[in-house]
Design a binder for these strands. Structure first.
Lengths: 148, 148
DNA sequence: CATAAATGATTGCACACGCAACTATGCCGC
DNA sequence: GCGGCATAGTTGCGTGTGCAATCATTTATG
């Protein structure tokens, strides 16, 4: 068993750690956001991503990449948020196939409510993961990759 | 805006990076495993976790934690794998509430087929992520946390 | 120009998931 | 032993998701 086999095992180990930490954080966020502001994690991700965009509008495809969701799931996700009045569809003039989504005022207001819930829950989840020997190294590594 | 606010933003940034990388890898693994050996990522995770256990048996609850799945999802996941003959339920004598799951010979055989698919796909996904500026730091950090 | 290929987004369908309620077994204090 | 409580696992139900097929619009090709 040579060096190549070791690197395979190291990669798998890193992936398991990544998946475990992701599952822990997402589970905590899901519970906190749904019970407090009635938003799932992906729904929050959409609102948050929109709020970071210039002019607060994005194409469907960008939303799909931002949320790691399929096109069909993206469509229905936007449907749900639009029916709740949190965002609006705006078809862009230059390419009439494309559709922009924009945050509405209620959407921005709900996001303002959701952000502290999200941030505090994330902090609690990370401190919780920090106490697990398997996850601690990854938790410590996260803040170091802010700047390239 | 002081130091505290910065750390909140740094945490959120790290979480977005983690989620993005997780989504990319899981998507690649899902496609590769389903098309080649007809296994989802969680199903592979179960078989892999079982193969790492002494005696190849685990309780349902352990499987739930290993896969970040709810109890109900764990039950039905084991149902699917049992119906395919890849594992068997074995109720343990000391605590008759608990149920052990064991890999069968076909389960081990299928896992042997699936592992190279999994490993090669993981490597491709990581090199792919390595070329994305926002994901590269995390990809590079992963191998460093094997031992801590 | 007309027609084919490509792209953005949506719908039909089957399925995996979480939550809440439920059953069954184990663990107490009395 | 016996009621009360906790724990392990399973089921009913509603819902979010991916895949494949589809429609609409843009771009390329003859």
């Amino acid at each position: 068993m040579g060096i190549a086999d070791d690197s395979v095992e190291i990669r798998s180990q890193g992936w398991r750690t990544l998946a475990a930490l992701h599952g822990l954080i997402e589970g905590e966020l899901e519970r906190a956001l749904t019970s407090n502001v009635n938003l799932s994690v992906v729904e929050y991700t959409v609102l948050d991503a929109l709020s970071r965009q210039h002019g607060w509008h994005m194409r469907m495809q960008q939303l799909g990449r931002a949320t790691a969701l399929s096109p069909s799931a993206t469509t229905r996700l936007v449907n749900r948020l639009e029916e709740r009045g949190l965002l609006t569809r705006v078809l862009c003039a230059d390419d009439r196939r494309g559709i922009y989504t924009e945050l509405t005022a209620p959407g921005q207001a709900l996001l303002a409510d959701a952000r502290p819930v999200h941030d505090e829950t994330l902090e609690r989840a990370l401190t919780q993961a920090r106490d697990m020997p398997e996850l601690a190294p990854l938790v410590d590594a996260l803040p170091t990759l802010t700047r390239a």
